[in-house]
Design a protein around this nucleic acid. Structure first.
Length: 801
DNA sequence: GCGAGCAGCGTACCT
DNA sequence: ACAGGTACGCTGCTCGCG
């Protein structure tokens, strides 16, 4: 029978010596599972494949009392990693777990390939199915016979956000003894609800009161089933809410049947992450999503709390009051406070839901662009997405996917980094009339215009058949192999979408949809260069990565030279951008120069006009006064919008008081052109710091612990604060963002550092001399002010008052 | 024993 | 667990001086 629907997710099942991929398909009105028989396999490169094939007909290995047999074999031709076509033995197994066992057992016969590709990834790459696409297929008895077609349609998803509250007087909450008191949820259909087992004294809207905790969990499962939720979303839910719910269910003698038709969920924790499988639904945790977006610089966030994430993505805070997790039990016990907690809980679910409205479209498009299931994309490193996109094409072209490097090889690669981009040192000062140009997608465009690829790299090829990089590596022109092939398609897809966007109404659903697609493509496209130089990459190519940066350095330095020959002063340049001073030239002159440059560039490369800035500041390095600091500048455009890069005020590891003062100083100089105003601002801040008037929350410095506190050679302030906090029961460790305040007690800065929750006072000298003054002096020094001047004046100011 | 000077550690930024 | 280039605060060592 012909069926059709959206491919929501994929699972694995095994039955009667047959391995299946289970497709979760959202059909008209309901979701259904369909089994797709698919045998896992790997390849063996061996001297005499025919002979080994015969031997394998009766092949079996013993593994932990289990006889593992080979299901079937065939001889195929593939391009192996030594870049020659060879006959290989393709060995099919009964169960995905058998693949590594058989591979291990067959080591004496030769080298094997593709034995470590996860089963579902293997299936997706081979069938070319894209998760979330609309599929049409032939089915019999819930078994897929044939996929007829697939289409990229806008997918309707029933999204439900949820959040739990726990009653605990001591930290951290323990599921064996601390009950869950509320489960809140938010969906388009239901709005905000909170399931609980105490009444709402004021009759808060959306409160559903049941008998006890057990019934609360069961009711939650009922609602998820009744609503037939497609996406169950939370914040830190993979590491907290889901395992807590699961544990409590066990303690209470019930089960957490959130899956389709009340099927149970699967939860596995592996160190810093976890897998959550809810059959028939997709679970997404937006905490790792925010971490990834933060790591890429797509969002700038101080700490990855739900509140911060919401503020960053949506803007204003939700109405509900923020409650300290350690205080929750008081709100539960107090009839006068419980309603506040209900509203807070619903507010959190709603916040997650609102975040998802913005971020989910991009995750959906990353799924489609990479081909990884949505359930993996949300916590996948970009390398996984690139690898997935490449694997599909490699299978198509019958290229063997190179094996993962051994640890020794990884170390070798890491100890031998490649040279990166070129950065020109600026002269510090305040400038007028700056034009910024940059190369549009420099590295991707270098790859496609010079055919840079693992497969096209050929040291033995004749030069005339190759693009030769500035550092002397040769890439064949004649064949469009893997990465340039994939990139070219992604780039043209993105180009087409951007053109289409220009014709659409910015508030339309279609615009939103296509915009998310361009965002996802941008993320993926920009990841290919990194992947070529990534030590654990399957297609690692040092020659490729170093050639790309060499060409990059060539084009930017060449453009700088041309600009200077044309009489422009080049103020600054970094990798793919250059800042020129107009000084005597007019804007058209600069644009004419731009055209000249573009005429000489390869067709896939383009230098773009980024912007015109009436004024800008470059500052001195702290260590070498007079020499300009790279990667630190502020520009103001003709509409008064300030663009700030690298300054303390964009860094999380500086206190708010230093950052806000630095911003005010920059504004006084760039907007008002009034250094005196800037000086007054600084004096006022110093004065209030001295008087102890500045609230502690403006003095918090945030720093991430990249490792466990035990593993530091040097005890820096954030480590000292973290250790003190840990001694007082706060859960901090690798990955925590530590907020601390420099207090009055102690000798060194580390001794004075106190975890923000325990900070009682602050050291004004530290905040004046180590925070505010260094931040603002950077800028004021360029205008001829000295530190002493500011400090002396400020002292006088206080005397006058 | 003590302060100055410095190297190295470590983080967060820029492209 | 995508790349390298860069600034810079802090710790903790060395060294010279007394």
């Amino acid at each position: 029978m012909k069926r059709e629907g959206y491919l929501i997710d994929l699972l694995h099942s095994y039955d009667n010596e047959q391995s299946y991929v289970v497709l979760v398909v959202k059909e008209e009105g309901r979701k259904t599972f369909y089994r797709y028989p698919f045998d896992p396999y790997f390849y063996l490169e061996t001297e005499d494949p025919e002979q080994v094939q015969k031997d394998l007909d009766s092949f079996s290995v013993l593994y932990k009392d289990q006889v593992v047999k080979v299901k079937r074999t065939e001889i195929v031709e593939r391009l192996t990693p030594d870049k020659t076509w060879k006959k290989l033995l393709k060995i099919y197994c009964y169960h995905p777990n058998h693949v590594p066992m058989v591979h291990e057992a067959l080591k004496p016969y030769g080298k094997s390939y593709e034995y470590k590709i996860p089963y579902l990834h293997r299936f997706l790459a081979d069938t070319k199915l894209i998760p979330l696409n609309y599929i049409v297929f032939e089915e019999e008895d819930h078994e897929v016979k044939e996929i007829l077609s697939q289409e990229d349609r806008m997918i309707p998803l029933n999204v439900m956000a949820f959040d739990i509250e726990v009653y605990n007087k001591t930290n951290p909450p323990d599921p064996r003894s601390n009950p869950i008191i509320m489960i809140s949820l938010y969906s388009k259909n239901l709005g905000g609800k909170v399931i609980t087992y105490r009444d709402s004294p004021g009759g808060v809207d959306g409160v559903i009161t049941v008998r006890d905790e057990r019934e609360m969990i069961e009711r939650f499962c009922d609602i998820v089933n009744d609503e037939d939720v497609d996406l169950l979303i939370g914040y830190n839910s993979a590491m907290f809410d889901i395992p807590y719910l699961k544990e409590r269910s066990k303690v209470l003698g019930t089960s957490l049947n959130l899956g389709l038709d009340y099927s149970g969920i699967e939860y596995r924790r592996h160190g810093m992450s976890a897998t959550v499988r809810i059959p028939g639904r997709v679970h997404i945790d937006f905490y790792p999503v925010m971490r990834t977006l933060g790591g890429m610089g797509a969002v700038r966030i101080q700490r990855y709390t739900l509140e911060e994430a919401y503020r960053n993505i949506i803007g204003d805070l939700l109405g509900s009051k923020n409650i300290d997790k350690q205080e929750i039990w008081r709100y539960w016990d107090d009839d006068n406070l419980r309603d506040v907690l209900f509203r807070y809980s619903i507010g959190d679910s709603r916040a997650v839901y609102e975040i998802s409205k913005v971020v989910l479209p991009v995750e959906i498009q990353l799924t489609k662009a990479s081909g990884l299931p949505l359930s993996e994309v949300y916590h996948a490193p970009t390398s996984k997405m690139v690898e997935s996109a490449l694997m599909r094409v490699a299978v198509d072209k019958r290229y063997i996917i190179p094996n993962l490097p051994k640890e020794s090889e990884v170390r070798l690669r890491m100890n031998n980094p490649i040279k990166g981009g070129f950065v020109k040192m600026p002269n510090p000062g305040v400038y007028e009339d700056i034009i910024v140009f940059d190369f549009r997608g420099m590295y991707p465009s270098i790859v496609v215009s010079h055919n840079v690829d693992w497969y096209s790299y050929d040291p033995d090829a004749p030069e005339e058949e190759c693009y030769v990089s500035p550092n002397g590596y040769k890439f064949r022109k004649d064949s469009e192999t893997l990465i340039p092939y994939v990139l070219k398609r992604l780039l043209s897809l993105r180009g087409g979408l951007k053109d289409k966007l220009k014709t659409l109404d910015k508030n339309s659903r279609e615009y939103e949809h296509l915009f998310a697609k361009t965002q996802a493509l941008k993320i993926l496209i920009n990841s290919f260069f990194g992947y070529l130089g990534y030590a654990r990459s399957r297609w690692y190519c040092r020659e490729c990565a170093s050639s790309i940066t060499a060409w990059g350095r060539y084009y930017i330095t060449n453009t700088i030279q041309k600009a200077e020959q044309r009489g422009f002063q080049v103020l600054y340049a970094d990798t793919d951008s250059l800042f020129i001073l107009l000084k005597g030239h007019d804007k058209d002159d600069a644009l004419q120069f731009l055209e000249e440059v573009n005429r000489q560039l390869p067709s896939d490369m383009e230098l773009e006009f980024e912007g015109y800035y009436p004024r800008g500041v470059f500052v001195s390095k702290r260590t070498e006064v007079g020499k300009g600091a790279k990667k630190k500048y502020a520009l103001i455009d003709d509409r008064g919008v300030i663009k700030i890069r690298g300054f303390e005020l964009v860094r999380r590891d500086w206190s708010e008081i230093a950052k806000e003062t630095q911003l005010k100083v920059l504004e006084a100089i760039l907007k008002d052109g009034d250094p005196k105003k800037a000086v007054k601002i600084v004096k006022d801040v110093i004065s209030s710091l001295k008087k102890g008037e500045v609230p502690l929350d403006k003095l918090i410095i945030y720093t991430e612990l990249k490792r466990d506190p035990k593993n530091y050679a040097v005890i820096s302030p954030e480590v000292a604060a973290a250790v003190k906090a840990r001694d007082r029961g706060v859960k901090v460790g690798k990955g925590s963002i530590i907020g601390y305040v420099i207090g009055k007690t102690g000798k060194t800065v580390s001794e004075k550092a106190e975890y923000y929750l325990f900070a009682k006072d602050y050291d004004p000298d530290y905040y004046i001399n180590n925070q505010v003054l260094p931040a603002v002096m950077k800028i004021l020094r360029e205008l001829g002010y000295s530190e002493e001047e500011l400090k002396t004046n400020s002292r006088q100011t206080t005397l006058w008052e």
